[in-house]
């Protein structure tokens, strides 16, 4: 990471931290205005992240110049970008209270990473691996959005069901909006993850020609992808939605996240660069 990149990474972390604080404060004081300001702060954080990544892309000599810190920043960038894009459509700013902490965790973990580069073996560096990584990361970012919307749905549903019609119920978005975001997140995430997996498989099978099908990350991702596929099918075919979908999609995502960490740190995998 160059000095200039670092100069952009620090304000990005500060903005995301401030936005997280603001969103959580908005939950306490129950003022949409506070969440609105937090959204602008998050937008500033996103802008710093974007500039930092553009700079990294230019300064890196090929894809190999990217390290773990960069890849985790790409995760944070994708989640915040997709969330902000969603804001223009749904205006559910309060959702940031569940999204911003996730972005902050990505950035904190990224900050804790060493500055090693060339983590991706040079033989793998090509446009297909870039497409594989970007699509998979974007898909997973959409699953984060879906899970956050699902969690907020469960909370709002509980308040309405239990007739707790205080200020919190008015502050949180409507059930319909949250369910729609959950669905968009799952559908978009599934499509992008599918494309990402296809890209990776094509590269591995025809360009790299190494052993990849037995890689734990590949097997587990395929299993999660299949479960998401089943969830989507159930929603479209027999109308699984609402609390059931929120709980299931959240659980699958949690399993996905935990398994990714276990595979990364405990098992031998060809995906150890991320």
């Amino acid at each position: 990471m160059t000095d200039l990149e670092f100069l952009l990474f620090v304000p990005a972390c500060v903005c995301v931290g401030a936005a997280t604080g603001g969103y959580l404060l908005s939950l306490i004081v129950k003022k949409v205005q506070v969440a609105r300001v937090s959204t602008w702060i998050l937008t500033a954080g996103f802008a710093f992240l974007t500039l930092g990544l553009i700079l990294a892309a230019f300064s890196a000599q090929g894809w190999g110049g990217f390290g773990s810190r960069h890849l985790l920043s790409v995760y944070a960038w994708a989640v915040s970008g997709l969330y902000l894009a969603l804001q223009f459509k749904t205006r559910t700013r309060v959702l940031g209270a569940f999204i911003a902490p996730v972005i902050l965790v990505f950035l904190i973990v990224a900050a804790g990473q060493g500055s090693e580069k060339n983590l991706i073996p040079p033989a793998w560096q090509g446009w297909l691996t870039v497409a594989h990584l970007v699509l998979a990361i974007a898909g997973e970012a959409l699953f984060v959005l879906a899970s956050a919307a699902g969690a907020m749905f469960i909370l709002q549903n509980r308040l309405i069901k239990h007739k707790k019609t205080g200020s919190m119920i008015r502050f949180l978005p409507s059930l319909s909006d949250l369910d729609r975001i959950n669905h968009i997140g799952l559908l978009g995430g599934f499509v992008l993850l599918t494309l990402g997996m296809v890209g990776g498989s094509v590269y591995a099978a025809f360009v790299w020609e190494g052993t990849w099908a037995s890689d734990p990350k590949v097997i587990w991702t395929f299993a999660v992808w299949a479960v998401y596929g089943i969830l989507l099918h159930q929603r479209l075919a027999i109308g699984w939605r609402g609390v059931r979908m929120a709980v299931l999609s959240g659980t699958v995502f949690l399993l996905f996240a935990v398994s990714a960490l276990v595979i990364r740190f405990c098992l031998p995998t060809i995906h150890s660069f991320i």
Partner: peptide, 9 residues
Amino acid sequence: VELAKKIFG
């Protein structure tokens, strides 16, 4: 009406 809006948006 307010409740309906919180359910359906």
